[in-house]
Structure formats: structure tokens, C-alpha cells
Design a protein around this nucleic acid. Structure first.
Lengths: 334, 334
DNA sequence: CTGTTAGCGCTTTCAT
DNA sequence: ATGAAAGCGCTAACAG
């Protein structure tokens, strides 16, 4: 590694000017004699001068950084959201600190504490779990001092905005599609236990009840949020001997598992059993037949989140919370 | 949002002590009278005092932050690597700034510039593209002043370490598996054009030639790095009328596409055509039949990267660059 | 055990 | 058009 970085004093001395002048040419602010400017710029260039964002932050009280808290960046849906948030913020001159909280309150609290010490300009919470986590008073207290946006969730605080996804409506789209094709024996494959997961489940039950189908509440298969979870749910359903002609899954990954298990058991899709997924992910396209799924638009969620956060940070209060409507994406499994 | 944050002076005044004493109790450093300590802690508590990491960074010249540059966090392989890096660094008290460079030199340069201004403690470059990008003098110059680890690549600099994945060997594993099963008409589905992609291709050619198979170099299908790319490669191969019994793919996603296209065209897998993927990703497991693939161990790469980076940062020069050997993971496509 | 003081590198008045 | 000086919030000698 090379010698110590030069600071603004070193540059000033070498250029034979004061630090104020250097600062002026650095920030293109105020008037500087063209000749002086040129001389300073030459010195800057020659020494590969890099201003210290820390020292600047000391004055401005901002490092132009936003914290993005997510459950687990390996989950494609979160990756898509975080990606778009990062790119958008980068264009606006902010860097993103990534925090994988595992959906745990304790980790969330630790990360938030550190982020507050680092004086982040704002925080984006990506995922419906944060609805629950933010209810905890110790977390709520931490969030009170900084602009916050909750991507897919509602936060009741003056310094926060929410971007909501109408997941209840999303699942209703899937159920209605199946009803339209004449399906009556429809089961729901439920994995997680977040606010969003609950909304999906409600969407399923309400839509079935609305269609006059009995015992909708009993038609739920609980499982884990992975490929194996989808497979297990199907095997248990088959074993139970219950009659079924369609499965609505809360995630593409469980839907892919369901399809896999059904095929292995000799069912034809969609002739014998129809399946729907959720997220419109790459998983849906890899699955053969391609999954009919629900697009819950993570990129749009990300764009709105960034828009709201920056309006909160820069106090250009022109926006407010918003809700996004999912769409059905037709595949070959219905 | 609440009132202005208190600083160490406010606390000192309220506790009736000097800022040094407050600093001492804050950092559990030096001796403080238990009674005084308690009083200060009470004031700290009552005011929800949060020390400024920026001011601390001003003194220590470090914000305990590491930049992770990757091509695109939405690519599962990078997500797995970045996830593990983030979690490991978090345990060691560092935060991670995520940068999606798109594999472009210009974006990389911009991000690096900013990261240097923010005085990051180190940089991890995730992905073989950075081999090429870091050759550019303007990029190389930027990297010269900070600890760097290249995850899957070689960087010839005093302040850097490398974690290499033996991708040539990885593909050789796949090819040998196919040769063992009697396959002779094997094609390689090549997508990208990075150092790693080239190594894979070399592994394919060398292994075939070693087995005495003619024209190995001509048995390459060029395509894009996505599901559609894998499908297209297969369709073109079929259309060409060439004889083939096995496909070695450079990525799971192209392998999944190949499988999909083959099934749609009526081929049985693996009876008519065998297929291998690369990455041991979720895609390999979703694919039906499950892909035989190569595990290139992103988590291990991440662990080593963090180990090497922290040894570089803390100057505990006990480690050096290392190479990771992939492993074959048997699926049902061979 | 505690307080005083000098930076850390920069921006920002305020003079000149 | 330029410079001098204060201050951002903290740590780390150094004194007492």
C-alpha cells in the first residue's frame, strides 16, 4: 500500500493557496480565479487527491448512505428488491449498506443500532416480517430518529412511509383463475407466518367462500418455505386421500416443489392437477410446465420505496404511502 | 423525527463530568470511579445517547466498513457469496456496502472512487469479471491504496489476496462423469466470456482431447447466460443435425433451459441425452429431473475471502491466497 | 481517578 | 477572489 493520503492542507500548501480555495475548486462553489483553479486542479490531479467523506460527513452530518435491511439476500424476491433499491439510490448519490437480519428481532436491533451510529440518511426495511418486528418497543424507539420506508408493510410513524403490496388481491387473482376453469377442490399451500402470508391465506379463504365453496378454512396445507416443503405438502395431501384438482401456493418455490412431486407421482399438469405460484420468479420459468404465477412487482416496490425515502430525507413531502396491485402471469400449470 | 441528537459534551455537562470521562465509560477504557460511571451511564441511558461513528471515524480513520462489489446480486451464485461475506463480516464488526456494477468497468470505477472517499477498510470483488476489469490501469490505480480480495480471480498486487476456484477442474469432473458413462458425443454450452468461463471451456476441451475424442474445440455452443439461452442452444443443436448424447453446461440456468427444451422436443433425460449444470444452485434442484451439477462452493469462497481480507486489514499476515476444488453433485440428468 | 487540550479533514461564515 | 478561523463529535495523550 502506498504512502499516507494527502489532505486538503497538503494540497493547499503545494498549490500555494489556502484550504478555502482548495475547497472551492473541489466543490465548484464560489468564485475562483481561473488561473488559480487550474493550478490547484493540477496539484489535485498529480497527487491523486481523494477527499475524505468522513470529514465531510462530520460537517454535513451525513455520509450519504442508506441501510437496506432484509431477511436474506439469497431469497430471489429480496434480491430483486434490494438490487433495484441499490441501483436507484446509487443514481441519486447514496450508497447502500446491506443487512441480512434473518428476520430476527435481535439481529434487527443490532443492525439498527449500528446504522444509527453511522448516521445513515435513511432505512429501507424489505419484507413483511418487519411489520411484526417493528412492533417491539425497543425497535420502534430506534426507528424514531431516522427516515424509514417499509417495503411491503405498514409503519405508523411520522418519519416513515409504506409501500404495500395487495397480497390478498394477488392470491384472489390465482384462485379466481382456477374457479374460472371449473376447479372446486382447491387447496392452499401455506409456508410462512408473516403479515403478508396471512393476507395471502385470507385472500384464498375469502375468495373460495365468496364462490360458495364449503370448508375453505380447512383447505390449507402448512409446510416450509422451500422446494422440499412443496413436495412434502403434496405427498401428505395425496396420502390423506382427500380429493383435489388444484393447488394455490404462497411461493413459487413451494409451487415448483408441488409440481415436482405431482409429476413424480404420475399426475399430469394441468390436466389432472392445476398449480399456481407466487412471485413471478425465475423458478416459475424453470419449472416444467412453466408456472402460472402472481407478479408482485418487486422492482416497482423498490422504485416507490426509493422515491418515498428520498422525499423523506430531502423533506420534499410531495409523496405518501402507496399500494401496489399484483398481476397474474399465465404459465402452463393452470 | 425527534430533537437533535445529544453529543458527548451534552452528556458530560448533564452528568457533571468532563468529556474524557464520558468517553472512558463509553469505551470501557481506563479507570473510572464506579459511582461516576453509574451516574454517567444513567445520563447516557436516559437520553438514548448514540455515539457518532463519523466522529469516531474521523479519529480512527475507519468506519469499519467493507465494500462488496459484485456484478448483480440477483444472480443466485453472487447472492450466496455476498450473503456469507456480509454475515461473516458483521460478526467481526464490519458493515458491508453493496455495489452492483453490472460487470462494467465504468461503474466499477465510480463505485471504487466513492468507496475510497468513504475510507472503506477493504474491498471484496466477487466474480471472475473483475479479473479483466482490474487490468485497466485506472482501476488498478484505485485499488492500490486499500486491502483487496478477489473472490475467484487473481490480482497481482502487494495489498491483495485471491481466492481461486478451480473451474477447469470443475468442468473436467462433469466431462469425466459423462465419459465414464460411455458418452462420446458431448457438447459444451458456453455462455459468458470471463476468465472463469474460459477456464471451464478449457476444462471441457482438454478433458475430451485427453480421452482421445476428435474435434473437441468444435463442440461448443455459444449462447446467453439465461434459461432461454440454454433452450436456444439445444434447439440450434438439434436443427444442425449433429449427433449428440450429452451436454455440459457452464451454468445451472442454461442447463435447466437445455433440459426444458430437450423435454419439449421429446427427448428422455438421461436415457437419450445427459445434461450437467454448474453451481449446485436451487435451479439444479428445481429442474426435473434434478440436475447433476458442480458445486463450486460459494460459501467457502466467501469464508476464505473474509478471512484473507481481515488478515490484510489487521495486518496479521498469517494467510495467503488459496484455491478451492469444486465437487460433483449427482442428480438425475446423467 | 479525572480534566484539559490538541488534533482528525473538511465546510462555512466572515473579513479583507 | 482569497484567506483566517471556528466548529462538526470524538479519541488520545498529557497533566494533575
Amino acid at each position: 500500500m502506498e504512502s499516507r493520503n494527502m489532505n486538503i492542507y497538503d494540497i493547499a500548501k503545494e498549490a500555494g493557496v489556502s484550504i478555502s480555495t482548495v475547497s472551492r475548486v473541489l466543490n465548484h462553489k464560489g468564485n475562483v480565479n481561473p488561473a488559480t483553479r487550474e493550478r490547484v486542479e493540477e496539484v489535485l490531479e498529480r497527487n491523486h487527491y481523494t477527499p475524505s467523506a468522513i470529514a465531510r460527513g462530520m460537517v454535513s452530518k451525513s455520509m450519504r448512505t442508506v441501510a437496506v435491511l432484509t431477511v436474506d439476500i439469497r431469497v430471489p424476491h429480496y434480491a430483486r428488491t434490494a438490487y433495484t433499491i441499490e441501483r436507484e439510490l446509487s443514481h441519486r448519490g447514496y450508497e447502500v449498506t446491506l443487512c441480512n437480519t434473518g428476520g430476527e428481532a435481535e439481529e434487527t436491533e443490532k443492525y439498527l443500532q449500528t446504522m444509527l451510529e453511522k448516521k445513515v440518511d435513511g432505512i429501507v426495511l424489505v419484507g413483511s416480517v418487519f411489520n411484526t418486528i417493528c412492533k417491539k418497543p425497543e425497535i420502534k424507539k430506534l426507528l424514531r430518529t431516522v427516515p424509514v420506508v417499509l417495503a411491503n408493510g405498514k409503519l405508523e410513524m411520522a418519519n416513515s412511509y409504506s409501500v404495500l403490496v395487495d397480497d390478498k388481491y394477488g392470491i384472489a387473482l390465482a384462485v379466481n383463475e382456477l374457479l374460472k376453469k371449473g376447479h372446486r377442490d382447491i387447496y392452499y399451500v401455506k409456508d410462512m407466518d408473516t403479515v403478508s402470508a396471512r393476507l395471502k391465506w385470507e385472500g384464498f379463504v375469502d375468495t373460495l367462500q365468496h364462490a360458495g365453496i364449503a370448508e375453505a378454512k380447512k383447505k390449507v396445507l402448512h409446510t416450509t418455505s422451500d422446494l422440499e416443503g412443496g413436495m412434502r405438502a403434496v405427498r401428505e395431501l395425496i396420502q390423506s386421500g382427500k380429493k383435489f384438482s388444484a393447488l394455490v401456493c404462497g411461493e413459487d418455490i413451494t409451487a415448483a416443489g408441488a409440481v415436482k412431486a405431482l409429476l413424480q407421482e404420475g399426475y399430469r399438469i394441468p390436466e389432472d392437477v392445476a398449480v399456481t405460484g407466487y412471485n413471478n420468479s425465475e423458478y416459475a420459468r424453470i419449472c416444467e410446465p412453466t408456472l402460472t404465477t402472481i407478479d408482485n412487482k418487486p422492482e416497482l416496490v423498490a422504485m416507490f420505496s426509493v422515491q418515498l425515502l428520498t422525499s423523506l430525507i430531502e423533506k420534499t413531502d410531495a409523496y405518501s404511502s402507496c399500494t401496489i396491485q399484483p398481476e397474474l402471469v399465465a404459465g402452463k400449470t393452470v
